[in-house]
């Protein structure tokens, strides 16, 4: 190789060098004390004619300077990039695990519900879990010694005080203290005296809803709830309304959504019963409203395909940490 050829190939090699080790190999190849290509030329200068020496000498020496500069520049590049952690670290290694916490799936579902209803102008309020039979039953048109009460198997604390069997008592508590128009949702824990299995728990969660005003209609209810479920389950969700019975609404209905080809019952609802308005001293001839209630666990089970309600209360991080 002549000087020009060495210049071309050596600079090319330096440019391509991937790491410090490769660069050293290249340095030895061209500038190595024993067999370096340029070293050989420089060493041979003394055997050349003066004319040849004059021609090649300066060019070879210049190339030596250029190469040394190129090597040191490249070396600096490597050390800088290794400080940035690029070279010397295999970035295909797994990333460092970040210690993050997880919210319980029921919290996530509740948050989503609150978010949707907030966007529909509903406020969020909560109520006590230990209730009186008046708020839990009587005021909601569920008289004592009537089998309708059997729809809610109850844990009793004493002869008057109980663990609320639904979030509906907050309808009464809220209306006692506020005047319409308003729209609220009430998330909270409720209790049922019943044997537990994959779909029944002795405590679970509901979200109650109540919209009251002078011109609230059943068609408004259909709009709000259809809108809710489309936001919750996705835009194309089919929602179905059918007759049902709850003592504190009239008409009463049940709401189903269609998922994977099946109608799933997800909500009980209706227009607030005139007797409920009587209990809070609203004029039932002037004021109307709709109320609804849904189970958080049920929605979470549908949404996340959780097969057993008891998992929510297992206290197992392997469960929570999936969400």
């Amino acid at each position: 190789m002549n000087v020009a050829e060495i210049r071309k190939s050596a600079l090319e090699d330096v440019k391509k060098a991937k790491n410090v080790k490769a660069l050293e190999v290249i340095r030895v190849k061209y500038l190595g004390r024993k067999d370096g290509e340029l070293t050989k030329i420089l060493r041979s200068l003394k055997d050349l004619s003066v004319a040849e020496r004059k021609e090649i000498g300066p060019a070879a020496n210049e190339l030596r300077g250029d190469l040394e500069e190129a090597f040191s520049k490249k070396l600096k590049e490597f050390s800088a990039s290794s400080k940035r952690g690029v070279v010397g670290i295999d970035i295909t290694m797994p990333g460092k695990k970040i210690a993050v916490g997880h919210l319980h799936p029921l919290t996530i579902i509740e948050n989503r519900i609150k978010e949707i209803f907030n966007s529909l102008n509903f406020s969020v309020v909560e109520g006590p879990e230990a209730e009186t039979d008046y708020y839990n039953f009587d005021a909601l048109n569920i008289p004592a010694n009537h089998p309708a009460r059997d729809m809610w198997d109850t844990f009793w604390i004493d002869s008057k005080k109980l663990l609320r069997t639904h979030t509906s008592p907050m309808q009464i508590r809220y209306m006692e203290k506020h005047q319409p128009p308003f729209q609220i949702i009430v998330p909270g824990r409720v209790f049922r005296f019943e044997a537990t299995d994959a779909s029944h728990e002795i405590n679970f969660h509901q979200v109650e809803g109540l919209m009251v005003g002078e011109r609230v209609t059943l068609a408004n209810f259909k709009y709000v709830i259809t809108e809710f479920f489309r936001q919750f389950f996705g835009p194309g969700t089919h929602v179905r309304f059918r007759p049902s019975y709850f003592p504190f609404v009239e008409p009463g209905l049940e709401v189903d959504v269609m998922l994977n080809g099946n109608w799933l019952e997800v909500m009980g609802a209706g227009m607030v019963h005139p007797k409920v308005f009587d209990a809070v001293r609203y004029n039932p001839r002037k004021i109307r409203g709709f109320a609804f209630g849904m189970g958080l666990e049920r929605l979470a089970m549908i949404k996340y395909k959780i097969p057993d309600i008891r998992l929510f209360y297992s206290g197992d991080l392997r469960f929570t940490n999936q969400f």
């Binding site: 406020s123 309020v125 005003g213 011109r215 408004n220 259909k222 709009y223 709000v224 179905r240 059918r242």
Partner: peptide, 20 residues
């Protein structure tokens, strides 16, 4: 039949929704 009931957006005075 509820399937024939229209979906009508409520028309009520706007008040800010709050969280307790």
């Amino acid at each position: 039949g509820y399937q024939k009931l229209p979906e009508t957006a409520p028309s009520v005075p706007l008040s800010s929704s709050v969280k307790e």
